[in-house]
Design a binder for these strands. Structure first.
Lengths: 140, 140
DNA sequence: TATTGTTATACTCTATAACTATA
DNA sequence: TATAGTTATAGAGTATAACAATA
């Protein structure tokens, strides 16, 4: 009955795929892809240039162009031309994008809370603490 | 200094994206995509039909056709025509696919072990147990 | 009629390479 | 020359709808 020594790697990937699948569905409910949600999430508290954004998302700068194009076309973000470097622009989330970000974030939170709800409160806290301990410093 | 009450949802998604990024890189080292790795992983101990496989991967059956086509073209899997239902086929991993699956799985395991290595042994076990507790029964 | 699977089509996402404009 | 960003192109992955073959 008791899982003796369940494998950490397998469990983490099972959980990752489950979370990703939930996120994909929630994003899809708002006509967003997972990467668009990540983009919006990054823009919550930053106004990065394209190269910086590419680094955050671990994408080539060329991949960013289309991504930002599609988000801009939907009025979720805007390109703000830099005043001091006429090659550069920063990407800023619009009011509409910010609203959508909040909506999606709330839905995601509710979903994950429900997933973890069966755990006793102390275990949920322990899990959160352990997860954050595994994350490398630059992700925190 | 101490993260007081770090958010569970945020931590889990940070970790999920980190794991996914590691998996993407490892898969790419072997010219595989993440979904191809998942496909191979499922075939380790099953020989499902296309519809069954679609259900495992949470994809439309039409998406499976191309996925399996590409894997078959590389000699990683093969379509075995069903003997009792001439519409149907099962998907079987080849010897070559099995070997590649092991290689990738080993690399992934090593990578995640390294990631979790800073944790004391007891904490690693606790983390694994908690993760498995969050997973719904059908994933175990 | 229902089911298994493929095909046609369209879109998103991604990379590489070549390019433009500015520094 | 170097840097910020876009464009051209190609391919994987995905879905919807229509289809073929078999049950």
């Amino acid at each position: 009955m008791a899982n003796h020594d369940p494998d950490l790697t397998d469990g983490l990937f099972q959980l990752s795929f489950l979370l990703l699948s939930r996120l994909t569905r929630i994003a899809g409910d708002h006509d967003l892809s997972v990467v668009q949600v990540r983009l919006l999430g990054i823009l919550r508290d930053r106004e990065p240039g394209m190269l910086e954004l590419a680094r955050y998302l671990d994408l080539e700068k060329s991949s960013l162009s289309g991504l930002v194009d599609r988000a801009e076309k939907r009025g979720l973000v805007e390109r703000i031309p830099s005043t001091d470097d006429r090659r550069a622009a920063t990407i800023r989330v619009t009011a509409r994008g910010r609203k959508l970000t909040r909506t999606v974030a709330d839905a995601v939170h509710a979903e994950i809370d429900a997933l973890a709800a069966p755990l006793p409160d102390a275990d949920r806290k322990r899990l959160a603490a352990l997860v954050w301990q595994v994350l490398p410093a630059e992700k925190k």
